[in-house]
């Protein structure tokens, strides 16, 4: 059975926003989570703590071909693109997309194409428009889209670009995202429509 996957993209201001979202999730959150945060490659050892301090779920930076695991937080590796294939992640060193590697768009697009309606994409704070195209692709292939409310975002550019590209299922303040996901994941592993 396909493991439902939440893909979260963030850039400037992302670490604190991501910590807030993750800290609000229950320890038995049943879906898999993948996080793409723009991050300097030479500081990669600082990434897990910066993004997931206080997160109740197991966390690891993704290795190539690692399975998508329910209830786990998978972190995109700095300086590699994170792609989603059928049931696992794949990494690539292809050229940066709009100066970003990992590219949120690439991760979201590949997740949509591999998993269709089992994907929920979330665009958080950031100073560029990465993620907008990918979020539209997720919606087009039957997945769900959330966007952080730009008015509360540390940097509203990225959420605004996402809103311009697609009509999300919800525009939420940071504190509302974990409860939304928890409700959507429901008591079983199956996503509710």
């Amino acid at each position: 059975m396909t493991v439902p996957l939440v893909v979260i993209g963030a850039s400037l201001g992302g670490p604190s926003a991501i910590r807030t979202v993750l800290a609000g999730l229950p320890a038995d959150f049943p879906w898999a989570i993948a996080i793409v945060q723009h991050w300097r490659a030479d500081h990669d050892e600082l990434l897990p703590d910066a993004l997931t301090r206080g997160c109740p779920l197991p966390v690891a930076v993704v290795f190539d071909k690692e399975p998508i695991q329910p209830g786990h937080v998978h972190l995109a590796r700095p300086d590699y693109h994170l792609l989603v294939e059928d049931g696992h992640f794949a990494l690539s060193l292809d050229a940066p997309v709009n100066y970003a590697r990992p590219s949120i768009d690439l991760c979201f697009e590949s997740a949509a194409e591999a998993l269709g309606p089992a994907v929920t994409g979330i665009v958080l704070t950031g100073a560029n428009d990465d993620g907008a195209r990918g979020l539209a692709r997720i919606k087009a292939l039957g997945g769900r889209a959330l966007v952080q409310d730009p008015s509360g975002a540390e940097c509203p550019t990225m959420p605004q670009a996402a809103l311009a590209a697609t009509a999300p299922d919800a525009v939420l303040r940071l504190a509302e995202i974990a409860p939304w996901l928890t409700r959507a994941a429901g008591p079983t592993l199956r996503p509710s429509p």
Binding site: T2, D86, E113, A114, L115, G116, P117, A140, L141, G142, P193
Partner: peptide
């Protein structure tokens, strides 16, 4: 992608497949 999911988007599915 999965070829058998009945719930997948009807408009995009043929293109991807």
């Amino acid at each position: 992608m999965k070829g058998s999911g009945a719930a997948t988007s009807p408009a995009q599915e043929p293109t991807l497949a």
